[in-house]
Amino acid sequence: MRGERWRRGALRVAAAALVVDGLGFGAFGPLPVASLARGGGIPTVAGFPTYGGGPLEAYVPTSIPLLVGFGVVCVLQFVAGVLVWRRRPAGATLALVSVALGAVFWWGFSLPVGPVLGVLAVVGVLAGWPALGQPAR
Rank of each mutant, 00 (worst) to 15 (best):
M1S: 11
R2M: 11
R2P: 07
E4C: 12
R5T: 09
R5Y: 02
W6Q: 12
A10P: 01
L11I: 06
R12L: 03
R12I: 01
V13R: 02
A14C: 10
A14T: 08
A14R: 03
A15Y: 04
A17F: 02
L18T: 03
V19G: 01
V19P: 00
V20Q: 11
D21P: 13
G24R: 12
G24T: 09
G26P: 10
G26C: 09
G26F: 08
A27V: 10
A27L: 11
F28E: 06
F28Y: 06
P32Q: 10
V33A: 06
A34F: 00
A34G: 00
L36G: 00
L36Q: 01
A37L: 14
R38W: 01
R38C: 01
G39C: 02
G41R: 07
G41I: 05
I42F: 06
T44E: 08
T44G: 03
P49N: 15
T50H: 02
T50R: 02
G54M: 04
G54N: 05
P55Q: 10
L56R: 04
L56K: 04
E57M: 07
A58P: 04
Y59C: 07
V60L: 08
V60F: 08
P61T: 06
P61W: 07
S63E: 03
S63P: 12
I64E: 08
P65I: 00
P65A: 00
L67Q: 09
G69D: 10
G69M: 09
F70H: 03
F70Q: 02
G71C: 07
V72E: 00
V73P: 09
V73N: 07
V75R: 08
Q77D: 07
Q77L: 09
F78W: 13
V79A: 05
A80H: 12
V82K: 13
V82E: 13
L83T: 00
L83V: 00
V84K: 00
V84W: 01
W85C: 01
R86W: 04
R86Y: 05
R87F: 04
R87L: 05
R87M: 07
R88D: 01
P89K: 08
A90G: 11
A90N: 11
A90H: 06
A90E: 10
T93A: 14
L94K: 05
A95P: 03
L96E: 00
V97C: 04
V97R: 03
V99N: 00
A100C: 07
A100L: 08
L101S: 10
G102H: 01
G102S: 08
G102Y: 03
A103R: 15
F105K: 05
W106M: 11
W106V: 09
W107H: 14
W107M: 15
G108E: 04
G108R: 06
F109Q: 07
S110D: 15
S110H: 12
S110W: 14
S110L: 14
L111F: 15
L111K: 13
L111Q: 13
P112A: 10
P112K: 14
P112L: 13
P112I: 06
V113R: 13
G114Q: 14
G114R: 13
V116F: 12
L117D: 02
V119Q: 12
L120P: 15
A121M: 12
A121V: 09
V122F: 13
V123H: 08
A127T: 11
W129K: 09
P130S: 05
P130Q: 04
P130H: 11
L132D: 01
G133L: 10
Q134F: 14
A136R: 15
A136G: 14
A136D: 13
R137G: 15
R137W: 09
